[in-house]
Structure formats: structure tokens, C-alpha cells
Amino acid sequence: MNAARQHQVAWDAGLADLVQPPPLLQSWGHGEVQAKEGWRVKRLNLPQGHASVLLQGRWPFARAYVPRGPVPTSEAALGALVTWARNSGLARLRVEPEAPKELGPVLRRLDFQPSQAIQPKHTLIVPLASDEIMLAAMKPKHRYNIRLALKRGVCVEEGEEVEELHRQSQATAVRQGITLLSTAQYRARLAQLAWCRTYVARHQGRPLAAILVAHFGGRAYYLFGGSSGEQRELQATYALQWAAMRAARVAGCRDYDLWGIPPEPDPGHPWFGLWQFKTGFGGRPTEYCGAWDLELSRWRTRVAGIPGQLAGRARRIFTRQAL
């Protein structure tokens, strides 16, 4: 085992010693993915825990972001992280702990203020058990659609089909007017995360839908997906999730994170269809405390934000011109 691999194994094992399940976004592999996308990564062995910190900007205007961290989400670990940030001369520290909203008073005591969430604040976590137990926990329509897809010959293959995942997700992105990852970004996740695979649903050899799933520390995560929109009556997207859940169970995962739902079942919400799809698989609704900012220097934070504001204005101007 080379030195880099030793560091990865030691870091991930250290997270698992502190909390179960350890957060995927604090894993060594996730830091490597973010390093390829422009962040500087600093992994801290704090006296009271660990934190994989993503850094942006140069001192004295550097800002830090800790996704789903620190680990654990104790007041002692948060306090140690704040001390490091102050001593490092950061302009701002943003944390998004994998902790319930009850952590809010602790964060306020440390002078954090609520910010715009970056990661999903609400999700569903499905316990993985026998086929019979998992199917019984689903809504009747979902059980019916899974069985229908299998009966009609939808087949799901596990692999590393980056191009097909990108093609399917781009079809969804165009329909919904959203932006998803590039082929290179999907490939980086497959290469760097501790365990990551694509699942592609096909009917008579024709690809209909694809998803990207990661495993870490005994939990599986449905990260990205898309479908061509063709032959929807075959219910390929239901077969995909079912195959990924069953494979995760066989691999030793205890549960499956569906990675984001709207906060309420509001028919007027643009993600209401997503809420209907995901909640039908059963699972435990989970609400996290969201993102919190600590401004360590107000003027340096403001100055650091100016390039981003200008870039955003330029993008809006370009979009209006393009339309």
C-alpha cells in the first residue's frame, strides 16, 4: 500500500471511529474530488475531532467551507475548528454539519449565523433489510412499479458507464432547465470516492435511465441520476433504485440516503414530483441544521465576495443576451 493510500485509509477509519455512519462529504475521496474542481483541501486532526476543510481565495481573503462537518458535531469540535480558523486568518468559516436542527443554539453560542444551505437540508434514509421488509415499507404504487418493470424485462447493470450516465442526466437537465455534472466530474467521483458505481436501466438493450451511487461507512448514497424520458411506462427509474438498494444491502450497507427532498409535500413546489418519487420508497425523514457562517472579518468577507458578485452579474447579462 503506497503512502497516499495509507493516508486515505487512516483518515476514513478515523472518521468511522468518531461517528457512525461517517459523512461521505468528509471522506478523503470527496476531498480529492473537490481538489480537482478548484478547491484547496485542508484535513484537520483537531484535538476534539476531524474536519475536511475546503478553501477558496487567498489570504487575507480566504474562506473555508466544511461540508457535513466537523466530525463529530460536538461543541468542543466546533470550538476547536473556530480556533483554527481564527488562527489561520480566514475571512469566513462556513460549516454545514451532519446534525439535526437542535445544533442551532450551539452554533449561535459560537457566533455562527444561519446561511443558505448548499447540501440537501431534508432527505430520506431508507433502512436496508430483506426484499420482503423493504417492499412492505414502500407505497403500493412503488411496489407495483418495481414488479412491473421487472416483469416487462427492464434490466439494470452496475458498472462505470460515465458516458451513458452523462447522456441520461443531460436529458433530464434539458427537460427541467437545470445544470448537472460534466462527464469529467462524474468520472472523478467514480475514480476518487471510496466506492462509487453507475447503474443503467435498459430494455431490450436500449438505455432508459441511469444513476450514480456511492457507498461509505455503511451507508449508500443516491447522488445523481437522469432518464431519457423514453418508454416511461416501463418504470425503469423504479427498477434502478430497487437494484441499487439491493446491491447496497449485499455490500454490507445498513441504509440508503436518497439525498434530498423538498421540506414539505407542496404540490406547488417545483420538486413535488421528486418528493412523490422518493417518499414512495419509505424511509426515515431526516432534517439537518443547514449551513452556518462565522464572519471572522466582515470587511475581508465583503471584499472576497466582490469577484463572485461580478461574475454572477456577467452571467446574468450573458444569459439575457443569449435569449
Rank of each mutant, 00 (worst) to 15 (best):
N2A: 12
W11P: 10
G14H: 01
A16F: 00
V19K: 04
P21C: 00
P22R: 01
L25G: 07
S27Y: 01
A35V: 07
A35Q: 14
V41K: 04
R43H: 05
R43F: 08
L44N: 06
N45Q: 15
P67M: 01
G69C: 06
G69K: 04
V82E: 07
W84G: 09
R86G: 12
R86P: 11
L90P: 10
L103M: 14
G104A: 15
G104S: 15
L110M: 08
F112P: 10
Q119L: 15
A129T: 13
A129M: 12
M134V: 10
M134L: 12
A137M: 05
K139F: 11
K139D: 14
P140W: 07
H142E: 06
N145R: 12
N145E: 11
A149W: 08
L150Y: 13
G153P: 09
V154T: 03
C155S: 14
E158H: 12
E158S: 13
E161K: 11
E163C: 07
S169K: 03
A171K: 06
Q176R: 14
G177A: 05
S182Q: 07
Y186F: 15
R187P: 10
L190S: 04
R206L: 13
P207H: 01
P207N: 03
A210W: 05
V213L: 03
V213G: 02
V213T: 06
Y222R: 00
G225F: 05
S227P: 10
S228R: 00
L234F: 09
Q235F: 13
L240N: 07
Q241D: 06
W242H: 06
M245G: 04
W259K: 00
E264K: 11
D266W: 02
G273I: 02
L274R: 06
T279L: 07
T279P: 09
P285I: 04
E287L: 03
E287Q: 13
E295Y: 13
S297M: 03
R298E: 15
R300V: 05
T301L: 07
R302G: 12
G308C: 06
A311D: 12
R313S: 12
R313G: 12
R316N: 11
